[in-house]
Write a protein that binds this DNA or RNA. Sequence first.
DNA 1: ATGTTCTTGTGATCTCCTTCACAAGCGAGA
DNA 2: TCTCGCTTGTGAAGGAGATCACAAGAACAT
Lengths: 219, 219
Amino acid sequence: MARKISDSTVRRLSRYLRRLRALDRRDQEVVSSRGLAESTGTTAAQVRKDLSHFGSFGKRGQGYDVHDLRVQLEEILGLTRRWSVAVLGVGKIGSALLGYGLFRQRGFDVAAAFDADPAKIGLELGGIRIQPLSELEQTFSDRGVSIAIIATPVEAAQEMATRAVRAGASAVLNFAPVKLDVPPGVAMREMDVTLELEGLCYMVTAAGQAADRPPDGNE
Amino acid sequence: MARKISDSTVRRLSRYLRRLRALDRRDQEVVSSRGLAESTGTTAAQVRKDLSHFGSFGKRGQGYDVHDLRVQLEEILGLTRRWSVAVLGVGKIGSALLGYGLFRQRGFDVAAAFDADPAKIGLELGGIRIQPLSELEQTFSDRGVSIAIIATPVEAAQEMATRAVRAGASAVLNFAPVKLDVPPGVAMREMDVTLELEGLCYMVTAAGQAADRPPDGNE
DNA sequence: ATGTTCTTGTGATCTCCTTCACAAGCGAGA
DNA sequence: TCTCGCTTGTGAAGGAGATCACAAGAACAT
């Protein structure tokens, strides 16, 4: 059906879904492309174009059935199955993730957590027992882990990612501030707070400099 | 100098900087556009094009002076000053951020933390005393907070953002899974783990479905 | 000096995403 | 049944960012 869907489209689909879930919970029955657009920060045409890649889900003159579209999007994004997630590295970020209850609710099962520090092994966080790295391969295969979350220090990140993939993970979410290499076919996303903060700094700084220019700014 | 720099360019600049800092620490003196590209996941031409928006920093035939380019990028991104950051909402994510030592090192001072829960007021995390929301305005102005990190539940996020901006914040980093409205001129970025995970799910699912098709897949 | 080799900086091109604009379609009301 | 108002789905146009390709320049060896 869909040839090649761009990353930006996928990101927006996720936002639509997030919004639809909220609307569904509130029992709103119908939403227009404009309504969805406004509450997700895009345009009505964009919403319709995004959805059109996958089929036609609305009623002309009416809009979209909230619950129906929600289910469709969950289907499209591959969220009708549950996903087993493992957290690699239980430092500040790792612990926060283990305690984050919203995952389970959204179809993600935190199936395991690993750390290199012997002092942490055996501790329980958010109902998950921290395991030694030596058990990684076995656990990944036993519990069908398909998503690895890298939350180790920079130095260990690449090795952990490689090992996770070899152990069966088909997706990696990287919190370590390095570029990780994964084999083709393995999905990969990065999250880095510092990167986002720096982006904000640029925007603030650039905006300020623009304002400094003479108001009759030539060109 | 620079007219309008795209978000993707700014993101890449940040990645280049991240890499340059690592190289600088290792006392590598020179790096080529290709070297930078490979370690940040882009192409040599892209690196040169990105930098060319701001000036010409390299030596033909040689490459870029690592330390020099690092300083230039820090200048461009607005990182030569220190930035005061406040964390709004000290739950799982908020606490992790407070404990995250790398901020200070990178020019970000976590100047304050706020929470609505009376039980948390007065506690200290990572050397920061948690304050009641009533002190928000005064503290923002006293400490010159310019970046607000929203780490509250969804329901409180918009109100906190609005209040932070009114109190003087010129940038908002939002961890709550909602779209936030801020006045024009205020910088805004969003981080949502669930969104990234869903993106990964789509990629894995879509890749799988592509593989399911007959290998002689027509068109 | 001169030639060789390497890498930058950048106009031109290309590709992909977004925006536009409108026909098609649905429901309600007369 | 026909008309009117509204919103979708989509081909076409437009724009922005990525890629290409090459001249310009820097060092080094001869």
